[in-house]
Design a protein around this nucleic acid. Sequence first.
DNA 1: CGGCAAAAGTGGCATATGCCACTAATTGAA
DNA 2: TTCAATTAGTGGCATATGCCACTTTTGCCG
Lengths: 154, 154
Amino acid sequence: MTKARKPGFSDCNNATLRRAARSLGRFYDDALAPSGLKSTQFGLIFQIHVSDEPAMGTIAEALIMDLSALGHTLKPLIRDGYVETFPDKDDRRVKRVRLTPQGDVKLDEALKLWSVAQRQFEEKVGAEQAAKLRAALDVVADLDLEMPAAASSN
Amino acid sequence: MTKARKPGFSDCNNATLRRAARSLGRFYDDALAPSGLKSTQFGLIFQIHVSDEPAMGTIAEALIMDLSALGHTLKPLIRDGYVETFPDKDDRRVKRVRLTPQGDVKLDEALKLWSVAQRQFEEKVGAEQAAKLRAALDVVADLDLEMPAAASSN
DNA sequence: CGGCAAAAGTGGCATATGCCACTAATTGAA
DNA sequence: TTCAATTAGTGGCATATGCCACTTTTGCCG
C-alpha cells in the first residue's frame, strides 16, 4: 500500500514543494494583506532589513533567486517608497539597497501581522516540527544539485 | 546560540519554503529543459494524465492552486497542442481537460528527464528523507490554516 | 414557473521568477 | 597602458499565480 494513493498525488519532490508553497503562501498573504504587502515582499524587505545595505547580488544569493528577478520584484517596493537604492562607493557596478523610513514603518506593521500567521502555523504543526521542516528545507535549498550528464563531460 | 545565524536567515516558514522552491525548481527546470517544458508544466500535465479527464476545478483543487491561475497556466500548453479542453456532457459550466496524443508523447519524453533529476535528488538527500519531506510538505499543504482574528468576529 | 444564490470559468491587472542579450565597470594580464 | 574576460545590473519576453469583477449555468425554493 504505497502506490496509487489519491489520484495524481505526485511523488515529485518539486511538485510537492510547489504545492505546499502555494498553500502556505496564500495563508501568509492573507495574514499580511492588511499591510498591503505580499508575503514575498515582506520576506524581501525583511532580508534587506537584516542585511547591511546589501548589494543586489548579495540579496539574490541569500534568497537563492535570479538577480534579474530580484530587480523586477524590487520595483513595486521602490515605486511605493519602501525601498531605495544607491550606488556603491567603490564599485560603480554595484547597486546597494536599503529601506526608507517608510519601509521601516511598513516592516514593523507587517511584522505584527506576520507573527500572528507564524504563531498560528506553529501552533498547528508544532514549533519543533516547524523548525525541523525549515531546517530540512534549508538543506534542500542549499543542496549542490547538478545534472550529471548535463554537466560538461561525464 | 539560537539567534543571529547567517544574516537574514529568516525563521519564516513561508520564506524558507519559497526559497527552497526556487532552488529546487531551477534544478528540475534545468533537467526538463530539453523537453521544452517547465517543471510546473510537467507537474500539471502529469496531474492531468493521472486524472480521468478532470474538470478544471478538480485539477485546481488537487494542486491547491487558484482556478484562474490554472486557466492561465493551461494556455501555453493548449497553444502548444499538448492539452485540450472540452465541455462536460451534463454541466455546461464545467470544462474538462485531457492530454492530446502529442501531450502523451511529450509527457513520456519529460518523464525520462524528470526521473533523472528525481533520482539525483534522492541520491543526495536519501529516498527515506525525501519521502519524509514530501509527507511533511503534504501535511503543511493540506493544513486547514485560517487567520483567527481575521475571521468574522473575535 | 420565476428569480436568486451558488458554482465554474474567463479576463484583466499585478506581482513573482527565470533566461537571454546587452551595457557599464572592473580586473587581470601582456 | 590597453584589451579581453569577468562581474553586476537592466530590459525584454514568457510563464506562474492570485484576486476581483463578470457571465453563464445550475439548483433550489416559494
